[in-house]
């Protein structure tokens, strides 16, 4: 499996049914109803994080925390190796004839290096996984999805009764419904 989440792009997809909501509670309820009826919601676009939506539409829990841990461990090992090489192997400094070995004075640098590697390692994978890159063309279904509207996108399948899905969206609070084919939207 690649790191980039391919679900985030809307290109090369079947026809997408688009529902527009304006109220958070109605949206959560509608998403639950749709999923309950066995309809596979491709994604929901919201201007702010709506808690619980990811679980309703079946997004798996992100593994970025594990990535962060791995990056942190790498950072710690890197820092210990760096200090050990410089301070013990390459050029030991004689301080009061004390043995040259690990001392607590290494800890601040080790800690800072670990935090730096964790934050930037995780940040890097966050951008990559989320398809966030300078110059990426954004697949917006609505100009106001970053403002105040919440958009539900349902990718059609051959077995899907499209008019029934649209009816369900309308009866559960969708203020507008559209279909999206190859970047062109028509209100239905």
């Amino acid at each position: 499996m690649g790191i980039l989440d391919k679900n985030l792009s809307l290109r090369n997809r079947n026809k997408i049914l688009v529902g527009v909501w304006e109220d958070e509670d109605a949206l959560i309820h509608a998403a639950e109803v749709l999923v309950h009826k066995g309809i596979n919601i491709h994604d929901i676009y919201t201007p702010y994080p709506v808690h619980g939506l990811d679980r309703i539409i079946g997004v798996k829990r992100s593994r970025l925390a594990r990535v962060a841990f791995l990056c942190g461990t790498t950072g710690l090992i890197l820092m210990i190796s760096m200090i050990y090489y410089m301070y013990v192997v390459d050029w030991p400094i004689n301080v009061g004839n004390k043995p040259v070995r690990f001392t607590p004075s290494w800890i601040p640098v080790m800690f800072e290096g670990t935090v730096l590697c964790t934050a930037f390692g995780m940040g890097f994978f966050f951008f990559w996984r989320n398809r966030l890159l300078h110059g990426v063309k954004n697949d917006l279904l609505d100009d106001r999805q970053t403002d105040d509207r919440m958009i539900v996108a349902i990718e059609t399948t051959e077995s899907m009764n499209q008019s029934e899905v649209i009816e369900m969206m309308k009866s559960n609070g969708a203020v507008e419904t559209r279909e999206y084919v190859n970047g062109v939207q028509t209100v239905i």
Binding site: D5, N7, L8, D43, I44, Y45, T46, P47, P49, V50, L53, D54, I57, V59, S62, L64, A65, A68, T118, M122, G123, F126, F127, R129, N130, R131, L132, L133, H134, G135, V136, K137, N138, D139, L140, Q145, T146
Partner: peptide, 19 residues
């Protein structure tokens, strides 16, 4: 960077903010 407000992105965004 092409942000769309996808639920998947928000879930990861919140996790990253927390960490």
């Amino acid at each position: 960077m092409g942000w769309t407000g996808s639920t998947r992105s928000w879930a990861r965004y919140e996790l990253v903010s927390l960490i």
